[in-house]
């Protein structure tokens, strides 16, 4: 955690509304993306993130200053998102349809990548089981280190390392298979 965030957290603990908002804006992007990739429904992802921020802010008094904020907060987001996903899985809420919006403006990331390649890789990621998909999301969306992922998921760092390795291998294998078995996957 950098000095700025430590200072922000200190001010937030003292009840400064502005500091809470800055923390919210700093962590919103990765939190909402992560929640959506877990729940696959924007409305419930927003609910999960809202609940996660509220819980984090209300628990700030018990948060130790010397610990990094992001893994702690990410764990709350994951828990909230998984709980809402359980409701989705039970059929109480619909998954968002992944239909192509004809008026949709493509992101710079999508322009930079081959569109078909994005879809293939995304489909492969979604085929991973949760034990391998979650560490992947925490690494590539939340930007956590392996040690931070271990803290966020409550598993040993060695297990995070092996799961990330296995996840990447499975993705490559899946893509290679789709491309007809041709060499190293280039998506």
């Amino acid at each position: 955690m950098d000095i700025t965030e430590q200072e922000l957290l200190k001010r937030a603990k003292e009840g400064e509304h502005d500091a809470l908002e800055q923390i919210f804006r700093h962590h919103l992007d990765s939190a909402i993306r992560l929640a959506y990739l877990i729940t696959r429904n924007w409305a419930t992802a927003e609910d999960a993130v809202q609940e996660a921020f509220l819980q984090a802010f209300r628990s700030l008094h018990s948060f130790q200053d010397d610990r990094p904020f992001k893994p702690w907060f990410t764990r709350i987001v994951v828990n909230k998102a998984k709980r809402t996903k359980d409701r989705l899985d039970r059929g109480h809420l619909p998954y968002d349809q992944e239909e192509v919006n004809p008026h949709r403006i493509f992101s710079p990331e999508e322009h930079a990548l081959d569109k078909e390649g994005v879809d293939t890789l995304f489909s492969a990621i979604n085929r991973l089981d949760e034990n391998h998909r979650l560490p992947l999301l925490l690494k590539y969306i939340s930007g956590l280190t392996e040690a931070e992922i271990a803290e966020a998921l409550g598993i040993p760092p060695s297990r995070v390392k092996s799961r990330l390795y296995v996840a990447r291998q499975r993705l490559k294998k899946h893509i290679t298979k789709l491309k007809g078995g041709g060499g190293d996957a280039k998506i």
Binding site: E21, F24, R25, L28, D29, I32, R33, Y36, L37, W42, E46, V49, Q50, F53, L54, F57, S107, E109, E110, A112, L113, G117, V118, L121, F122, I125, L136, L137, Y140, I141, R168, L171, I187
Partner: peptide, 22 residues
């Protein structure tokens, strides 16, 4: 992987509205 995940998780909502609720 990073670019794919980011491309597939673009939030259509509003940060201001969400902050308003929180």
């Amino acid at each position: 992987i990073t670019e794919t995940l980011r491309a597939k998780s673009e939030w259509p909502g509003s940060a201001d509205a969400l902050w308003g609720r929180i």
